[in-house]
Amino acid sequence: MKILVFGQIRDNAIEENVLGILNKLSEVFADSEISLALLANQINNDWVEELGKHGAKKVYTVEASELENYLSYPYVKSMLEIIEKTEPSLVLAAGTVFGEDLIPRLAVHHGISCAQRIVDISLDIDNILFHTPVRDDQAMRVTKLVGAIKFATTRTGAFFINENPSGKSPEVEKVEVTFEAEDMLVKHIEIKKAERTVNLKDAKLIVAGGRGVGGKDNFQILKDLATLLNGEIGATRACTDLHWIEETYEIGQTGQSVSPDIYIAAGISGAPQHLSGVKAKTLISINKDEGAPIFNYSDYGIVGDLHEILPILKKKLE
């Protein structure tokens, strides 16, 4: 079976989730032929080598100034050309913001639907099965796609990366794509990179706040608690978007990934995009809504107002 993976580049390197996909594919589809598509202004040979190490047999490259930044049309156009060349049975991308934009569009061009944010992929007798958690991860939906070519994205953080990959240099094939003015209707202006001044990766304890914190000043109690417990603070994108706290503290798919022993979540609803960045040994949450999804993931929880609970908690711990 032929599989094509979108080799997304992020910060001048292969997106980590792409490596996770390669590892998973090598487990599930032992005899498959895995190709990668690399699209960029300029291809860096290190990317090619790294993909080879992680199991890519062949890398298709498209180099063009139009591909310097992700934009739907030029990326779709390039991928369609590569698909036509490789005739894969399965096309996969990491479920990043770009991957989730790309895959449905490619699927549309092949008149088929797609499965997004899968956390597992398996083989039935003659079907590929896609596993997607639904209803705040309370239920698992398994789907199949009907058609000769199937399209899917994976949930970020779902698959492990092989730490000791031993693959060989892949074969490289250059693909020429020409772009027209109408491919560039959406104009890339800039990427406002969030400053990452504080590294939360090694924090043993994190006190994280969500929209429920209710304001910039209210973050003080979280900071005090974190200091008391020798930990760090963290926040959801909702809070950084509101400028209640610096962007560096954002945790999740688009923020930092953390793996503390203890994660205290206050006023956080528990969106998958937030939790996909949290791998805590113990998750303690405080939320005034008993139905908040965060409780489904928590080891301990208090249904209550964080403005009441946190000060008491801090006092008792002092």
Binding site: D137, L145, Y300
Partner: peptide, 22 residues
């Protein structure tokens, strides 16, 4: 006409016990 077809929908059984104070 659907090309995305559901094969199954099952509850995810979480083994870990959670202690939620209500």
């Amino acid at each position: 006409a659907a090309s995305l077809q559901q094969v199954s929908l099952t509850n995810i059984v979480i083994e870990k016990e959670s202690y939620i104070i209500t």
